[in-house]
Write a protein that binds this DNA or RNA. Structure first.
Lengths: 341, 341
DNA sequence: ATGCTTTACTAAAACGATTTCGTGTTGATA
DNA sequence: TATCAACACGAAATCGTTTTAGTAAAGCAT
């Protein structure tokens, strides 16, 4: 409730001008010590807080960074956000987070809400629906206004700074580890090919097969369509006449689901079936046995992304070429794979 | 990059006044059809987007709600946010989310960032550190400016609308279920008492013991201090001379941790030990066996919270008394407890 | 020709701050 | 005593928008 205290009101009350009040509060030497003290005392008494909007409008910058991520509950994204916040705060910026919920519509809406002066730059991980629709006009319009950096979920058609995980390398490492620990029939559970990270991880998988001279088996490649029941689609893999003895799943959920299904069928993990997931989140940690995964260093990704963005925002030089940073991934051993012999 | 298009620039370019442009764009009948068309065409051509900050400053309202939650990765909070967003969007508001990371400092900072005009109201779940420090001045100051609704983590000293889970009822139901499925020694893994929800859930636990005339055993009450290693503290419970055969944990992590430790010790779940958690998140779902939990209806909580807030914001009547809504909880059966006989 | 109503527009205030440029009063110096 | 600098403050522009109030010009009736 309560009428807000503004500079103008303080000025009127004290019988001085607003400029005097403003300067007094910022300790300008133009104002006598006497007046400064008086103004400050009055401001404190009435709990004066400057209006953020007015400041931002005046300064033409908000010192706020808008972040749009596709999902809320996602350990990986949460670590990325931590990295972003840390980097932003170090340089005096704040962070606001919005969720697209994997929806194109919400992504557009979020951008509209934050654009138009509210934030100085955007950090976005593209929604699945947007990747499928391939409609990137909102990003193009955005780029006219403020800098944009994409992370994790990116697309070659959008020209800007990017930070991605080494998905190909990760897919390779996972598959290689399964092969090296004795798996003869390694399957992959991935997303449809329009999801960039799923496609890249599959490429890594295929590269590993090639490197170890193993023939690709189409039955061993599952593209999960999230519009339908996920367990049903994964179950098919475990009902093949020639059941795989190694599974590389491109995310935690698929990995944990596969493990549950296998266990229900009485398949021993990891003796009869080894499983590797991507993203070392809570699910992997608390599943039983714990999952071997590819740790993604989300914090590092967040730090890198915000660094690129802030450099772009604060840069005087306009034509720095766009870069794409690649964050390394690392095998993190759980108990869902056999020990290397 | 690119210089932004403003009303002023359009006006100058077209040789009319800014007021004409503004009115033309909003289809005012004061402006001739001819001019309207001309202005609109020009605006579209140069992709004019009104400056949000200026609008908010002018209208003295932002149509944005600020949400501050303590943790990012938390299935429960994510469902609450979904409910908040749904309710907000229905009434034309948008939502911005910030994370306090359970830190008092960050909570204060987040409020400062969003206050001062940026948002029309606040929805907050109090950080653990703030609950411990019991310093609520930032909330008091906030209340002078815009309405505040607390959800889930609340405190009696802060007078405002609140929405909480029926924590006492939940604690009671969980404990009762353990007792009814034959557990003789029911333990609780809870938080320190300054965390409101932990305390309430413990109260429910104690009430159930009383109801079923079971004597309280102090060894069976673990207050986890998150400053130290969590598994170590929980392990003590399972190394008691008289090991409990039922555990009620006030959150998923504690429940899953207890289960892992028990399994490592070769204790059979649920035959030798039953476990119930709170919050039906991914961890409960993907743990093996899946956890019996208390589903919290986060979506409903979010809807209720935003409804209270928007009513307060839009209310013409100033002195509506504060209310506290209580959201029901529900037992959701997993395989970590025995079947009722 | 005078008065009245439309029509179609502009000027200016307002939102709440910052900041540049002026300006009147001191006090010191030549 | 005239001149100049320092001091302490105010006026006004500015950020981008909306909105109220005002005003020319045209059309119409008397």
């Amino acid at each position: 409730m309560g009428a807000k205290v503004t500079l103008k009101k303080i000025a009127k009350e004290l019988g001085v001008s607003t400029s005097t009040v403003s300067k007094a509060l910022s300790d300008s030497h133009e104002i006598s010590q006497d007046t400064r003290d008086k103004v400050k005392a009055f401001a404190k008494l009435y709990n004066y807080k400057p209006n953020n909007l007015a400041l931002k409008l005046r300064h033409q910058r908000s010192m706020v960074i808008g972040v749009i991520i596709p999902e809320i509950v996602h350990h990986f994204f949460s670590t990325v956000i931590s990295g972003i916040e840390s980097g932003a705060n170090k340089r005096g910026y704040n962070v606001m987070v919005c969720f697209s919920n994997e929806s194109y519509q919400k992504e557009v809406l979020n951008i509209e809400m934050l654009a138009g002066g509210s934030v100085d730059g955007f950090l976005v991980s593209i929604a699945k629906e947007t990747q499928e629709l391939m409609d990137f006009r909102h990003f193009e319009e955005l780029k006219e206004e403020v800098p944009l950096v994409l992370f994790d979920r990116v697309h070659p058609k959008i020209l800007c700074d990017k930070v991605v995980v080494d998905d190909i390398g990760g897919g390779f490492k996972a598959t290689e580890h399964l092969i090296k620990t004795g798996c003869k029939n390694v399957a992959i559970i991935t997303t449809p090919d329009h999801i960039s990270v799923g496609l890249e991880r599959k490429r890594g998988y295929l590269k590993a097969l090639e490197t170890y001279e193993i023939e690709m088996n189409k039955d061993y490649i599952i593209h999960v369509n999230e519009k339908y029941d996920i367990p049903t689609q994964i179950k098919k893999l475990l009902e093949l006449p020639n059941v795989p003895d190694g599974i590389f799943a491109v995310n935690e959920i698929y990995a944990a689901t596969a493990m549950k299904i296998a266990q229900d069928k009485g398949i021993q993990i990891p003796d009869e079936l080894s499983i590797i997931g991507f993203t070392d989140g809570y699910i992997s940690q608390f599943s039983n046995p714990s999952l071997t995964t590819l740790a993604q260093h989300g914090y590092e990704m967040g730090e890198k992304a915000i660094e690129l963005l802030l450099n772009r925002i604060e840069s005087k030089v306009p034509d720095v070429p766009y870069t794409t940073e690649i964050i390394n991934v690392e095998l993190k051993f759980g108990n869902s794979t056999k020990k290397i012999s």
